[in-house]
């Protein structure tokens, strides 16, 4: 098809709620890449990343009624579904087996810098942050550790972790705009 349709977000949501196939195809074509990018940066294994993307779109299809436009944009909602699914996957057995060596329980893998492979999307921006900020974003956003877990493992007060993550996010925002 040559005719390119663009939907306003609310129209797209309405189509999805009616379980409209063309609405879903549009959604996939428009957003799957962006979501896939984030998923790949969390679950590095390509086959697992494919599984997560499938889970993500199936969940979007099933749960579209629970999306609340008052709480944020459609993309943000989808991104959080994708991120949560990806982090869930990293907790699964198949992911642990895909790693060469499994981390000891309660410890996390120090985030490794893999420019070239990871150097796109959000991580391209994250790499511009100060080392300390970069690590906190890695641990909290990409590895999904809670503030408490990070505080415990880095032997830092919880308040400090929270403040530093917030200031890392402010830096991130400045780099995005």
């Amino acid at each position: 098809m040559n005719t390119k349709v663009t939907y306003e977000e609310q129209d797209l949501v309405a189509l999805l709620r009616q379980k409209d196939d063309s609405g879903f195809t549009y959604l996939y074509e428009h957003y799957s890449g962006a979501l896939y990018g984030v998923i790949k940066q969390i679950v590095t294994d390509m086959e697992l990343a494919n599984d997560v993307l499938q889970e993500t779109f199936v969940n979007i299809w099933r749960k579209i009624d629970s999306y609340d436009a008052g709480k944020g944009r459609l993309f943000t909602w989808m991104l959080n579904i994708a991120r949560n699914a990806a982090i869930d996957k990293t907790r699964s057995k198949s992911f642990q087996q895909s790693l060469k060596h499994t981390p000891i329980d309660g410890e996390f893998v120090q985030p490794s810098v893999k420019p070239g492979i990871d150097d796109f999307g959000l991580k391209r921006v994250v790499y511009k942050l100060k080392e300390e900020h970069r690590m906190l974003i890695e641990l909290s956003y990409f590895q999904g550790f809670t503030h408490e877990q990070i505080a415990k493992s880095l032997n830092m007060p919880l308040g400090t972790v929270k403040t530093r993550i917030r200031s890392a996010l402010i830096q991130l925002k400045a780099l995005l705009s």
Partner: peptide, 21 residues
Amino acid sequence: FETALEEQLLKDAPAPPAFLK
């Protein structure tokens, strides 16, 4: 912020394998 994040992620998004759809 949502819009800025969305734009960044849409900008250089890797295409998922074709069979996935």
